[in-house]
Design a protein around this nucleic acid. Sequence first.
DNA 1: TTTTTATTCGAACATATGTACTAATATATA
DNA 2: TATATATTAGTACATATGTTCGAATAAAAA
Lengths: 195, 195
Amino acid sequence: MVSEKQKNILNFINIFIEKNGFAPSVREICQGVSLKSTSTVQYHLEKLIQSGLLQKNYKKSRALTVNNQLSNKKIPILGEIAAGSLLMAEENVIGTVNYPNTDEKSDLFALSVSGDSMIDEGIHEKDLVIINKNQQIKNGDIGAFLINNSEGTIKFLKNIQGKQYLVPANKNYDKIPVNENIQPIGKVVSLIRDM
Amino acid sequence: MVSEKQKNILNFINIFIEKNGFAPSVREICQGVSLKSTSTVQYHLEKLIQSGLLQKNYKKSRALTVNNQLSNKKIPILGEIAAGSLLMAEENVIGTVNYPNTDEKSDLFALSVSGDSMIDEGIHEKDLVIINKNQQIKNGDIGAFLINNSEGTIKFLKNIQGKQYLVPANKNYDKIPVNENIQPIGKVVSLIRDM
DNA sequence: TTTTTATTCGAACATATGTACTAATATATA
DNA sequence: TATATATTAGTACATATGTTCGAATAAAAA
């Protein structure tokens, strides 16, 4: 639907805004993408608008806005996992962290890692794990789980001989069979460590 | 230093940008703050610029940017560390990553980890390490170093019996004595891993 | 091939927009 | 009071900028 040139223009606009804080003029786009006619740019801008990738205000200068909802958002950091399902209750939010672009809406949150049960996977105490609570934890994934409605933990989810286990990445800990006391919270999608 | 009217104008600009995605024209500011002359607005804009609260590009339309550095910035991701000092050369930038607010200006960049020499510290291949190139690497810190002007690496910096070494976190690698072939790049301040 | 569609260009136009100049009025300062 | 400083207004100007129109060229489809 959108040609290479149009992607090129959109990218130029993005970078220009990023760099200057305001959108380029039609003629600046001309230069930026090696086109000699303003009407050619106009033509491509129309296409981009039709594709919903760009917005423009009629007759206003530099009034281009790029439709990237990819701007990064703040996601909450939960201190300890509270009992029950009131996981996202505000009382538990101990801070926020900026997290890069994602298509997901607000199904992300961060959790501070406690313990060393995943140390062999390079997940340390105090690390911040980003969890998508609406993404299913599949075999082999690292997920966050709630045990006995009280204790939160990060573990591998693994199928062993037809049964599911929470498997730590630390020889000193044993795997835990998944039963009704184990409640999945979400998949670990990212890790942030400040030093 | 700045009058009420000027604060008023600055506020109007902020809200306008927030709402529309681009800055208002001089005449739109006129309307927005109930002034009848463009030159009056011009006069106040000058004041705001002198106070360092606003930036403007000469003769460019809607080219106002408000100086609130409270927004979090994108920092470049460098693919491979290039030889010499052209570290931040644009050719090497393979992307950007959003990184939370910091007081530092633009002394941060990200580097994709290659190799497993820091595996015991939980720094994996493909992890993104955030590096502050203006922060000194002290004894015990993890830093990024350039070896022989060609190869980039992440290591501990450690003082052992009065001599400095780059120490890996992997039993399979040896420590490297620091000499003139080792060039410090910056301190590793954060780690990001996507899974 | 012919026909259609996509892309590019050039030139001209209308005006939105930043800027400069002068003057008037208010507000503060001596 | 007189003098200086801050603020507002009006007008005019130059041009930066979005827009339109027609035509040429390239690429794709029939």
